[in-house]
């Protein structure tokens, strides 16, 4: 997946899930300030990103993501980790 494809997928997730106008989403948009998302939205984003990555994200690293662009980088790294077969973080999600 190219960076551009990842970006487009993320814009789709954000606009579908959070009633955002796709044109209002820019790479430099900050998730929590400019796009006005909160921590529960973040949980839902990272659950949906599994469709792209096929991995459980590391919650510590996920917390550091601030902008759309950083989210793209995060997904790229997850994809690379999946490619290498890195073990998933040992985190039990609450059911």
């Amino acid at each position: 997946m190219t960076r551009e494809e990842i970006y487009q997928s993320i814009v789709e997730i954000l606009s579908d899930s959070f009633e955002l106008d796709p044109d209002s989403i820019k790479p430099e948009s900050t998730l929590y300030e400019e796009l006005d998302l909160d921590s529960i939205d973040a949980v839902d984003i990272f659950v949906q990103l599994r469709d792209l990555t096929g991995r459980r994200p590391d919650p510590e690293r996920a917390k550091e993501v601030r902008t759309v662009d950083e989210l793209v980088t995060f997904v790229e790294e997850e994809l690379a980790a999946a490619e290498r077969g890195d073990p998933e973080p040992d985190v039990q999600m609450p059911t």
Binding site: R50, L52, T53, R56
Partner: peptide
């Protein structure tokens, strides 16, 4: 159908 398969981690 990668997204469908990957959802089921």
């Amino acid at each position: 159908e990668r997204a469908w398969h990957q959802r089921d981690i």
